[in-house]
Write a protein that binds this DNA or RNA. Structure first.
Lengths: 338, 338
DNA sequence: CCTGGCACTCCGGCGAGCAGAGTGCCAACG
DNA sequence: CGTTGGCACTCTGCTCGCCGGAGTGCCAGG
């Protein structure tokens, strides 16, 4: 077990290193933080911290740098979440309030997060699987061709073209539309399959096939499109990594283009809790030198999607966490107001 | 006027420089291209080319590097468009054929272009302004709340929420929907305002206001959403610029995040012709060290949107142009098949 | 357990020296 | 007049060695 002071030393190291981006030595530490001990004492503490794997030195006789494990401890026990200043809060609200539709909300959120944290921002579109149905529309584009439009309570719209095995009369279509809507509007996606299972029985034999096709297409949409989309921004901030460039930045850019990777990254975290994944804790190879801070957001009390930022492991965790949390909160509000 | 041989020398310089990324000298030139003259002669030619501003030397007594003007001449008069190999063509077709909807087509196109050219790819969504209306749907979500859904012939769907000044009855709404569709389906967007101008007159006084609101919202959607969206990919390829890094890459990444900039970039080019914009010819500051190759694509004979790539001025122009042209052609086909 | 002192190590910057590549110019040649 | 070989010059980029600074580990004393 580490003594109180050693934890304090670790905190100081993390803070200094995040600020200066340079390995921090014992003397500098005692000067900038008023630990009431001498450099020599700090050196002993550092040796202990290194022994435990919380810090490391790039070369013999250089200063110390926190390891992933060190950051982990810092995040878990030494640092809080830094609340934003009130001008910042106001700026967030103003910026998001101007949004006109869902796409715009997401786009603005990405920009905001990227600006606030000066890192790469990732925002997931509200997931279909947790949404409810606001409306289903069926349009006859041709006798045996139907367009299905699904509108969710988060404002998302999905459409799909359906080729029916047999023509579906205009009145039958209207009938189906009415029945569908009366059954599933306001319901969770997960409930829908159960609710529509017996619908074909209400129709005549010759149309039953077409109805079944439409329904299975609807269910497909629900399942398939649950696969989420996301938006990223602020990649220019990666250039602040500087120096050891091409090597560091390239895999990160590549990872960011793989939506699958990012979705898994966000998906694996707990729903509404803020999650910090540091360096090698990340599942993806290209992201082992980055940290990901993510949190769920939602229109009600429940999270419908995630958002977060990707940055160097050497990041300002309290500030970043504060920004992420605040943005998530405001986006949730906006979505709730709809 | 430059002699034939001097043009040949310029071509050789561009080709070598693009290959090696290093300033090219007279001796190397004579060895690798069989110009039938001595290095000394080439030196004289180079001096002339430099005099005219087609090439430059980074430092006294270093090799020569093409200037923007040099690349311009190269593209205009010295290089053709290199056709793709047939395996490449097949790969394109296979890859694009797997697409399931418009979003997917665009996404695949971006990846394809990025991979093929090893540069940053930009693909614009089919522009609304040149599309025709396939269907308009009006949904009553609440007594005085209507959702407008617009479906275009390119498969794009736009939706919008409308708050009406007065409630609109279900039958009136159906009436409006029917009238709207019968008038504007199959029509160009630009025709729509003219075609719907007298529609409110067909309705009773108490509903006329609501109808007008819906119509003006429709027109707004047509105009406003004409502002196009686009998708980019392959930013990781920027790291191939290497070396002089942070300085070069940062402004490019920033520019790429400004959709407005990119849209203007694509928009300013001629419609269906392939356009190459080299270095300082670019309107945007951050892109002065890059070249942009773009071309329109469309489902019919007419271009509905643009696509292109952004890369270093020192790029393989013939190859890039070939890839861009081929991809545009295939995407057009896919869209036409719908 | 803390502290001051001391010897040691390693990085990073600086300047010299050197090889290589490329140039410009000139005089000669067809 | 265009082309060529020769030659002196210039610049870059690399390596090497040198040093100062910062930081460490260890030890002996409080």
């Amino acid at each position: 077990m580490l003594s109180e002071r050693r934890l304090e030393v670790l905190r100081a190291i993390v803070q200094d290193y995040v600020g200066t981006e340079e390995p921090v030595g014992s003397k500098a530490l005692t000067e900038r933080h008023n630990l009431q001990v001498s450099p020599a004492t700090v050196r002993n503490d550092m040796a202990a911290l290194e022994e435990e794997g919380y810090i490391a030195q790039p070369h013999t006789s250089a200063g110390r740098v926190p390891t992933d494990k060190g950051y982990r401890l810092f995040v878990d026990r030494l640092a809080g979440v830094k609340p934003l200043s009130s001008p910042e809060r106001r700026a967030i609200q103003n910026f998001l309030d101007g949004a006109v539709d869902l796409d715009d909300v997401i786009a603005r959120t990405v920009r905001l997060l990227a600006q606030l944290t000066r890192q790469v921002a990732v925002v997931q579109y509200p997931s279909l699987s947790r949404s409810t149905v606001r409306h289903v529309e069926l349009l006859a584009l041709a006798p045996a061709r139907v367009m299905l439009v699904l509108i969710t309570d988060t404002g998302r719209v999905e459409q799909r073209m359906i080729d029916c095995p047999a023509p579906l009369g205009e009145t039958s279509l209207a009938d189906l539309r009415a029945r569908l809507n009366s059954r599933i509007v306001g319901q969770r996606f997960s409930e829908v399959p159960r609710l529509v299972a017996d619908l074909p029985e209400a129709f005549g034999l010759e149309e039953r096939g077409a109805v079944a096709t439409v329904l299975s297409s609807l269910l497909e949409t629900l399942v398939e499109e649950t696969e989420e989309r996301l938006m990223i921004g602020g990649t220019a901030n990666l250039t602040r990594f500087a120096q050891d460039f091409p090597l560091t930045i390239r895999p990160v850019l590549e990872a960011l283009e793989e939506q699958v990777v990012l979705l898994r990254l966000l998906g694996e975290a707990k729903d509404s809790e803020m999650t910090v994944r540091i360096g090698h804790e990340n599942p993806h190879e290209g992201l082992t030198s980055t940290s990901v801070v993510s949190v769920g957001y939602g229109s009600g009390d429940e999270a419908v999607a995630k958002l977060g930022v990707v940055g160097p492991t050497r990041m300002d965790y309290p500030g970043t966490m504060g920004a992420v949390r605040a943005v998530a909160r405001y986006v949730g509000q906006i979505l709730a107001e709809n």
